[in-house]
Design a protein around this nucleic acid. Structure first.
Lengths: 214, 214
DNA sequence: GTCTATAGACTGATAGAC
DNA sequence: GTCTATCAGTCTATAGAC
């Protein structure tokens, strides 16, 4: 821990360039980013980018893989955890993502946009097999709940889309929302923290109401 | 109507170039788009783009304004309509957007990304005053409902964010969702059509549950 | 109006001094 | 390791032929 911090404070040139690339790529996207922008942001010269990383694209790939990892990270663990209930999982997932998104608000728009720019690249970069071996435990729990209530639940894909939509979209549209409502970044983050408790409640309500209907 | 169709079929060179620009800009974004891509897509030469539109940026601005108009269009009318109830408005808004998004699935990601790329430009392009004169009637209806139920409702901004999140986000993350779930474009659109009925129901449920709590 | 050819600026990448 | 200088390629925009 101590040594980790030391490394970050006296970061190597390579680390500083990578950090600068992370900032610029995330804000402007791959196509709009100039290697000169990264050099300026890092405080070093343009030539060093090619010295440490062979090309703009290779540097971008490193950043992208780290971002995708940050985004998918630990979700596999959460949804397969046998010690938490279905609704506890919802709370944990939402809390995990909102904390991460407040720290990295530009992340989802960046990732979604780059996937859109080159869909095929995603397939090779995201570990598809990562979450695919066997049925996810959360799905098992879902089916058990449906059986216990003797109910035909709504398509779980809708619930999944609702959960990530409610959690992630406000960050994707952050600037638009703040522009139209005039709220500050501080107040926006406070709203998002409120949603940590509200979203799982809302999703639970949606699930419950879909049971009563049938 | 008939003459409109005729114009579209025998579209002028200017219209063809604009349509090509719309397609390419929307798919690749401003920075990644080359004027040569637009020329190729239009079937005409690169020089004609500068003949009809003075520059890449001016052409982009035209496309962007049209897209923003398409996105904001008629919403002001819906939310100020005195002949519909609050919940009817929710249904109309969601239905309107889902139909529009199935026809233009790339639109929201394009707009959100370009706003992110140049936030200041948005302010000058979107008519800020457009919806700002006087309180929106839907807000009045919201307050009346809160008063009638003698309830302190949840921040309406949350409800608004929920509505647009549930409606728009699946289209923003369309490729990611389809990649992870393996569903076809056809099935994805079918799911979205299901959501036309489901989202207003869910949002209504969320509003109702927030009343019962207080 | 539409084309070809090209100017002028910028980009990613590298050579070579220190 | 880090810098300056520069190359080769690509980009937007335009000049000029038809």
């Amino acid at each position: 821990m101590k040594s980790e911090q030391k490394i970050e404070k006296n970061a190597s040139t390579e680390e500083k360039i990578k950090e600068a690339a992370r900032v610029v790529f995330t804000r402007k996207g791959y196509a709009a980013t100039r290697t000169r922008d990264i050099a300026e942001e890092s405080g070093y010269n343009l030539a060093l980018i090619n010295y440490y990383f062979r090309s703009k694209e290779k540097l971008f790939d490193i950043i992208m893989v780290e971002h995708l990892h940050l985004f998918m990270q630990s979700i596999a663990g959460i949804v397969n955890d046998r010690s938490t209930t279905l609704f506890e999982k919802l709370e944990i997932i939402v809390a995990h993502y909102i904390d991460m998104l407040i720290a990295n608000p530009g992340l989802p728009l960046f990732i979604l946009n780059e996937i859109n720019a080159d869909p095929d690249k995603l397939i090779s970069k995201v570990g598809i097999g990562e979450m695919a071996h066997g049925e996810l435990y959360i799905i098992t729990q879902w089916k058990e709940m449906a059986a216990a209530n003797n109910a035909q639940l709504v398509n779980p894909l809708h619930i999944f889309m609702n959960l990530i939509s409610l959690t992630i979209f406000p960050f994707v549209a952050c600037l638009l929302i703040r522009n139209r409502t005039g709220i500050s970044e501080e107040n926006f983050n406070a709203l998002m923290l409120e949603r940590k408790k509200l979203i799982p409640m809302w999703v639970k309500t949606i699930i419950m109401s879909s049971m009563q209907q049938t």
